[in-house]
Design a protein around this nucleic acid. Structure first.
Lengths: 105, 105
DNA sequence: GGCACTGGTAACCTTGAGGTTACCACTAAG
DNA sequence: CTTAGTGGTAACCTCAAGGTTACCAGTGCC
């Protein structure tokens, strides 16, 4: 079932958050430390691991223009942009749900 | 952030699968054992637990017409139907991703 | 009575996602 | 030289999600 596939690939605490973060900024902004600061709560280990997973799945690409490691940056690929409907719909749902809790609360 | 909220509430291995399952059938079909058989891999424990979570979040309702426990069944609520866009978009993405993997081989 | 089904629950165990700490190499600024 | 920043990695630990097994009560059939 396709739903199960998607949940396996995009599941977990961080992947969608990372993709969404990258989708909103330019490559130059997306340095490792910037991302770490911009995604509250994520550890270097998880960020590193998830970025590798996302690279493997062709959703994120890493650029390192020179030899300096300190110039590395990340950006979302064209293919990666295809998960944006997923994050969008989840964000909408989250907002709706918050409202509903308030009204009902 | 709304995205994090959504991931917390809908996250995990089973919730979206259950909601999607329920959304496709009538209440009468949705007995506990039927669901267990229809959602491959789920255990009674998880099904029971997740159904309770979903009831708490007002997405699923349990009906038990008589006193007999054996007549219990589950159905998705109007509110629960609002997560259908999420499952739909994930299913589409999953199908696309499968295609892309094949092409890219 | 005995067997099979239903709707579950309680107790226990395993596994891996995720967190924490420490560490490395390189660059730039003071 | 020292301090602070960058981009990470390795090793270890924890905890909860999820799985497994056993069990219970009720209904129906033969």
């Amino acid at each position: 079932m396709a739903l199960q596939d998607s949940l396996e690939i995009l599941g977990g605490k961080w992947k969608l958050l990372i993709v969404h973060y990258l989708a909103q900024r330019t490559a130059e902004e997306n340095t490792f430390k910037n991302m770490q600061r911009g995604i509250p709560g994520i550890s270097a280990k998880m960020l590193s691991k998830e970025l590798k997973d996302l690279e493997l799945n062709l959703m994120v690409s890493k650029e390192q223009p020179g030899l300096k490691t300190s110039t590395a940056s990340y950006s979302i690929t064209t293919y990666g942009k295809k998960v944006m409907p997923v994050t969008d719909v989840l964000i909408n749902w989250g907002l709706q749900h918050r409202l509903m809790i308030k009204e009902n609360g």
